[in-house]
Design a protein around this nucleic acid. Structure first.
Lengths: 204, 204
DNA sequence: ACATTAATGGCACTCGGGGCCAAAAGTCGA
DNA sequence: TCGACTTTTGGCCCCGAGTGCCATTAATGT
């Protein structure tokens, strides 16, 4: 499981009754990425994406709250998994190690998922509008870490340390991602380790 | 000088020739904050801001690229100052200390500027659209730090360490700001120190 | 007075987003 | 098989941000 895995399955709310759905999140996402690849994110209109997916514009907005949300897929579902990863970490593990390993595991995906994941993150991190929108996703992700730290240290999730650890973990992840995207041959997990090591020696 | 100081003076490109300007960045900003305070950011239309400032909608967009840019004022000018602060730091100072003190100095403003600064940052950090937009500003700020670190360590600004230090410095600043805004009696500079101390012990 | 210069602001357009609602397309019970 | 019910679809219309175009305005300099 990884960031690349949040293109999960569109769950059926209930089977049978009512008009059947016309599409799925994945179909829209695929159609969108196809057009983004051709014309870029900005130049691709929502109307065009809807047409490519064979649905109405209005319907698209029922699957995704905004155009900016499309590249992120169903990120919220992967957060549930992230929370689980952290909670399962052994209690005797140091806090820093627990968080770090959790982040590594969250970003550990097989080599087969890597190209798709690279395309997704490359698009996000190279498009200003998406970079901007992403902070809202990042905030949720940081929240998961803050909650974990708070729980383990007997603090409130709004206290300075949990918040700082959340922000810092994101800082490390983004640093690694930026470098990873700039270098084809780089290994993401290794970069996460390197970033952590670099920061520790910087702060020591 | 501080984040609060980027409401600098609107410089005259040349005196005299041509139709005189109808307003300044500051006038628009004041008008905007007046309306934001009354109706909130989202519910205040650009049209209303222009009217409040006594100018045309079209003219407002010549002063600010977007509605989201208004609360930030003239941040780019304060970045010039930030760059200078870092460059003036003594060479015998450790890297971490140099960066940390630079950040402190950048955020050091007199008690008289604090209320205005609080209002500004409070608006930004409590409005999703502004939070999102802010990453573009943050990226510039991080860039200043990355350049400084790169120069001092003989690295490229895109290398992992400079980027990581930039991201981490922002992480610390945002953590401090969030807490500061949530607690009326808190001292921002002290919080920056605390966040740094907390992170160091977390990573030790 | 008149040419020059530069900012203003109106108009019209595109695009993202959302409220409203009739039509579509299924299932289920009689 | 027919109708009632349920749920999604997607068309229509609106709003607000942002932009290109350009005539107008208001200053300076000759």
């Amino acid at each position: 499981m990884s960031l690349g895995t949040f293109l999960a399955v569109t769950r059926a709310p209930r089977a049978g009754v009512g008009r059947p759905v016309a599409t799925t999140h994945e179909e829209i996402e695929d159609a969108a990425f196809r057009l983004f690849g051709e014309h870029g994110f900005q130049s691709t209109t929502v109307e065009a994406i809807a047409a490519e997916a064979g649905i109405g514009r209005r319907t698209l907005f029922r699957y995704f709250d905004s155009k900016n949300d499309i590249p992120w897929g169903r990120f919220d579902e992967s957060l549930v998994h992230f929370r689980a990863i952290l909670q399962e970490s052994p209690a005797d593990l140091g806090l820093r190690e627990a968080v770090h390993r959790g982040v590594l595991q969250f970003n550990d995906f097989g080599p087969e998922a890597a190209p798709q994941h690279r395309r997704r993150m490359g698009l996000i991190l190279s498009t200003p509008a998406l970079q901007a929108h992403s902070v809202l996703r990042y905030a949720q992700w940081r929240g998961v870490i803050a909650e974990f730290v708070a729980a383990r240290e007997g603090l409130a999730a709004g206290d300075l340390l949990p918040v700082t650890v959340g922000h810092t973990s994101l800082a490390l992840a983004l640093s690694a991602y930026e470098f990873w995207l700039a270098h084809d041959d780089a290994d993401l997990l290794q970069l996460l380790d390197q970033a952590m090591a670099g920061l520790r020696s910087y702060l020591a």
